[in-house]
Amino acid sequence: MYKVKVYVTLRENVLDPQGNAVKQSLHSLSYREVKDVRIGKFMELTIEKSERSIDELVRDMCEKLLANTVIEDYRYEIEEVVAP
């Protein structure tokens, strides 16, 4: 079994209105050090082992559904775990 963590965020060059609002809110709380906030999604997938490569599988899922690559970037971490 694999535990896969997928992180999806708006691309660097795409304005993130939510992130901007949160940044301003942090500034008004006097956290002046905050330079940028990007808001994204975090997904945890539990995936069974199969003959297909786990890396390829997760990348396919990201490209097809989990991220919209027109405006979003994704990255993921794969951890092998013992099935319960």
Binding site: L10, V14, L15, P17, Q18, A21, N68, V70, I71
Partner: peptide, 17 residues
């Protein structure tokens, strides 16, 4: 139609949120 790729581009949240 955008998600399906029948039209180009994507939608973001309204700038006012």
């Amino acid at each position: 139609l955008l998600e399906a790729g029948l039209l180009p581009g994507a939608m973001r949240r309204n700038h006012s949120l």
